[in-house]
Every structure is written in structure tokens, then in C-alpha cells.
Amino acid sequence: MSVLVYAENTGGQFKKSVYELISYGKAIADLLKTNLSVVSIGNVSDVDLAALGKYGATKVLNCGNEKFKDFNSQAFASIISNAATTENADVVLISNSFAGKGLAPRVAIKLKASFASGAIELPEIGESFIVKTGAYSGKAFAHIELKSDVKVISLNPNSYKVIETGGTAEVVKVESYTGDEHFKCVVKEIVRATDKISLPDAELVVSGGRGLKGPENWGMIEEMANLLGAATACSKPVSDADWRPHSEHVGQTGIAISPNLYLAVGISGAIQHLAGVSSSKCIVVINKDAEAPFFKAADYGIVGDAFEVVPKLIEALKKFKAAHN
């Protein structure tokens, strides 16, 4: 019996969501009175792997073959499920990242496991094992009982705190993989904006809507985001009009996010938009229409013209940063 976490890396580096997932795994392992193992695929340094012990891992299986430099859902799922079998894992945890979304369903099939995708808090473990996830695109939560012996759970980013417990993990090299038939899907090119904060992982998000009147007015949104260290987002009409890329669209048919701060400028707050952002911890709405429905779902609001309010916020942020650095 054990808990197994897949620690996803991006170009050999771990992101915060991995530490969240291992902390989450440690808490589940404690509830089940068992150990936590981690499996890593691709090129991560032994120092970084051993450091995962800090979050509660006792053992790290390192499948560090050059062949696994690029993401491959079939091969990776095979490695993870082999690791789950050798570790005798009854709970397998995977980040609900874009890669995780392609992996976790495959791992569940391989292990004949039940699968809850997008968990948002620790499972309730008693006579039954119940996982809480989002449902109806942020409009509801589902409590799913996982009934099989082996369970796969994917955890949403920003849903669990990183907890350092101290310790170093034992790193074990594994070469369990042979399936060359899994390399049909080939990565040709990776295009990544390195200077921007990725929206699904972001703790702070500044978002703009139609109230900004045109793409040429996004400079102030970006400036505010830069000052905050926030990611930028937008509403559906904005991405539909190609003012901003689809990858920035948050809402029912875009990305669902749960940052600590969601600051919405010029977004009225249609039910579809609220669905994607309602699990944000703090919501700020800036809109010139006092009747905008978004104010009812906000923690703080400013009724005013974005073109007057945002420059004042930028000023205040600059002062704030100067005072707190």
C-alpha cells in the first residue's frame, strides 16, 4: 500500500503545482497511514529529485531517459502505471495540468482505477473515499465516491497549500519502459512565451473585458499585471473578437481558474464568465455600470471608468511596491 505522485517537469524544472501535489499526496498518505512515493520522467537533476523529500516524499523513482524529454501521453502513462504497480500504490496523483489532462485518464484505464479529475480539496476518507471536484463549469461541486481498490485523482493547480515537512527522498533510477509503439505522436516544435506567467498556475490574475473598447487599450492591463506579477486573462467576447488569444479566455467555455486574486476590468460578469472564476479567493470588479451583475459576485468593487481607475491603481501599486521592497 502506498500513495504515488507523478511529478511533472517543464524543461527539467518543477513548478509550484508539483509541490502542491506532493504536499497533497503527503496528507493523503498520512490519512491512510502509508508512505508517499514520487515518479519523475525526463531530465531532472538528482539534487532536485532528492529535494522532493522536503514535501513528504520518501522515495523518488527517476525514469530519466533522454527519450522522455518530450511529453508523450502513451509512454508516460505506461511508466506511471508501471510505477504504481511496483509501488503497490492504491492512490495515484497527477496534476490537472494540460499534460496531466492527457495522462490521468490513460493511467486510470491501465490500472482499472476509478478517476476523479480536478480535485479541489483533500478527499474525505472514512468508510468510503470521497473526492470533491468542480462540476457544471464552476457552478457546482460534485462529491464523487471512488469505489475501486486503486484510485486516480488529478488535483487542480492553486487548490492545496505547499507544506514543507523536511527530509530528503531516496532517488532510485528506473528503466521499466520498453514500449516503442508509443512513439507515434511526435513533438515538432514547442512555442512558449517565457516572459509571461501561465494563466492556469497564476496566483494573481488581471482580466479585461469589452469595457476596454479595443486591443490597443491592453497596455494598462499588462502594466498592472506586470506590477503585480499577475497573469493576464480576458472574457469571451474579447477572445472571440481576436483582441486577445483564446488561451486567455476564462469562463465556462474557456479556462476555469482559482487564483488568490482575480481583478476584472470592464467585464460585466455574465453567468458563463462567473462560472470560470467563481472559485477565485478574492474577486475585484472595476466597471462603470453599477448594475453590472459581477458586483454581486465580488469582494471589492469600484464603480468607475476603467480609463480613470486603472491608471490610479497603477500609481498606487508603484508606491506600494516601493514601500514594500
Binding site: F115, I144, E145, K147
Partner: peptide, 22 residues
């Protein structure tokens, strides 16, 4: 049958918005 949805709930409404003068 590997799993079953036992129940649903909906997000708790937020408290009253705190308005700040522009």
C-alpha cells in the same frame, strides 16, 4: 461501476461587496 457521484453542492455566496470610491 468504479465510482459514483454521491451529492452536489453549489458555491457559497460571497458577502456584500465592499465598494471603494473611484
Amino acid at each position: 461501476l468504479l465510482q459514483e457521484i454521491k451529492s452536489y453542492d453549489t458555491p457559497k455566496p460571497r458577502g456584500q461587496v465592499k465598494l471603494i470610491s473611484p
